[in-house]
Design a protein around this nucleic acid. Structure first.
Lengths: 339, 339
DNA sequence: TATGCTTGCTTAAACGATTAAGCTGGTTAA
DNA sequence: TTAACCAGCTTAATCGTTTAAGCAAGCATA
């Protein structure tokens, strides 16, 4: 037997008042100060008795607020995205917002499709891990006046809010450590992309080398296609291991690169850190299975997610025109793999 | 500058017709057969020119369809959930549905909260990984007449659709393999829960032992609290390793149990499979980092997600009263760890 | 005694779409 | 000649809320 949905008018009929009165009371509208205690109490009780659940759709249509935020991540199956999604959903829920989500798969058309769908659903704001070359997409969103927070991926536009890490500092610090440990031929495994946050990681690497008195060698920088990570990482590492003069360290700039790289190095039985010192990026389950402890850059995922949610919601509620940029510090967790 | 949202009436004004005409044309309503080619074309063109995006909220209020499905997983940060979420979102999107999601954290109150929120948003259907002891919660949903598909976790109620694996067969087959490989003292690491899909895994273990002529020993069955997995797994394994007569094999019944168990066995340098044969559950990144290949039960995650989405949507659209139960076969991927 | 203020409500117009029913002028069939 | 029909629209109600404006009765004030 299908239960009929209880509406305002059911309560109104039951109590013998108008729907307006019921609405005022249940929403604690200022006008409810003018409703008698007796009627108020009866309305509240009846709402409870009938287990009234307001129709958010109708509410949203009238108030022009959906209390929904959109979240577009690169890939929800990537633990980095999944972890942040979890935090964001949690924080948003606490503040009365529901999250609708989608994965862009680094594909700009899929992202646009998701953006359109979400806007049609009148989301109040959007948290977006933007894909490569999507400046104009971001600009379009801004033009619509919908609150937007970019997460993880930075774009140099000053009207847009952003929450991410100090990408430059993260790799700078990592390379500095490797140099301090006596490494001179340091390889880099990074993505083939124009995404600013990744080129910032590259820049940190390059500057740390320079500041450490080491001339960068382009042959030691391997760029990996987002769409064939495993194959490219393995080829890149194989090339690095054969380089002349020999490579003595390598830095990975994302979690998937780290996992794929470590797997290969493990399977090839490369002596770490003796032959090759390693610094990975992001925390992953696999580090515990390595013969030695892994040195890695830890991103503060919880804070990232929370900050994104907070910045977005404050923007939505305070209508702050000012864009907010948050750059969180990473932590270099030093293990034995870095020499 | 904030762009004003284009509405039906803007197009209507532009073309010089009523909003009804515009609606008929843009929705390919049967009535649109009676609108002249000229007017139709002008409406379509104007909609494109103005980049009209229908307001889903208004549409939903009128049609009583939101084209939104709710997804409640146990923990979106668990790769098992994340993977399925990704597939479900993808498949649903293809069919015109948007997904709103939440993590219950195995907490029944949090789950109820999510269910309420989603219903207030008038979801057309729900995919639910139900938490322990939530039969009455499920019954409530059914009473409302909202299409529901349980995923992963089975409950013995015949009015509700379900998509999952053959849990009994999965562990039965795994234990059978261990017995064939000469193991006689086989431990089980499982959760402390009444969840049927997990007790089915236990039952498969027990029956395979019995059918293999081995008397089950309760001391070899370790139940782990969902809320302190690492600690409990380590204690459980430590106990198993000290058991008399010696344990010669162990079976893990979920991915997190497998990861935590393997980590401990690795760190304790337990010889696998010589001293202890191991069968894990679910595919994880960490297997590749083990000295030997791991034998594990593979769940068909893609098919699970797709089936859940398909069953739900067919139920929503065809109004099939009949509950559908899908039990997908698992694959026992045999490596060296099982001896 | 008229005036205004307060109290405790109600009325009805929105929000932006969908859609049944109606209207008008021409064509066709009987 | 007139009814019936069709093409090509429009009108207006509706979905379930919110909320500005209104209204009636009672009380206080001038």
């Amino acid at each position: 037997m299908v239960h009929k949905k209880i509406q305002l008018k059911d309560i109104a009929r039951e109590v013998g008042v108008s729907t307006a009165t019921v609405s005022y009371v249940l929403n604690d509208h200022p006008m409810s100060a003018r409703i008698s205690e007796d009627v108020s109490a009866r309305i509240r009780q009846t709402a409870l008795d009938l287990n009234y659940q307001p129709n958010q759709i109708a509410k949203s249509l009238k108030t022009q607020k959906t209390y929904t935020i959109g979240l577009i991540v690169a890939d929800i199956a990537n633990p980095f995205s999944a972890h942040m999604a979890r935090i964001i959903e949690d924080d948003a829920k606490k503040k009365g917002y529901t999250v609708i989500f989608g994965s862009s798969d680094e594909n700009i058309d899929k992202a646009q499709n998701l953006i359109n769908t979400m806007f049609n659903r009148q989301i109040d704001g959007l948290i977006l891990a933007a894909v490569d070359k999507s400046q104009s997409q971001i600009a379009d969103i801004l033009k619509k006046g919908v609150p937007l927070v970019l997460i993880d991926r930075y774009f140099p536009m000053d009207q847009v809010s952003y929450v991410g890490i100090d990408n430059y500092g993260a790799t700078y610090e990592a390379v500095q450590l490797l140099i301090r440990n006596g490494r001179k031929r340091i390889g880099l495994i990074s993505y083939d992309t124009e995404l600013v946050h990744l080129s910032e990681r590259n820049r940190g690497y390059l500057d740390a080398l320079r500041d450490g008195g080491i001339t960068a060698d382009n042959a030691l920088i391997k760029t990996i296609s987002l769409h064939q990570i495993r194959q490219d990482v393995e080829r890149g590492l194989a090339e690095l291991l054969q380089a002349e003069p020999a490579v003595d360290a390598v830095l990975f700039t994302t979690n998937l690169l780290s996992i794929n790289g470590l797997r290969y190095l493990y399977q090839q039985k490369v002596a770490i850190p003796e032959r090759l010192a390693v610094v990975a990026f992001d925390e992953t389950d696999v580090y515990d299975f390595f013969p030695i402890s892994i040195t890695y850059v830890r991103q503060p995922l919880d804070e990232l997610g929370r900050a994104a949610s907070e910045v977005l919601i404050s923007q939505m509620e305070n209508k702050t025109e000012q864009a907010i940029k948050v750059n969180l510090k990473t932590t270099l967790v030093v293990g034995q793999s870095s020499g």
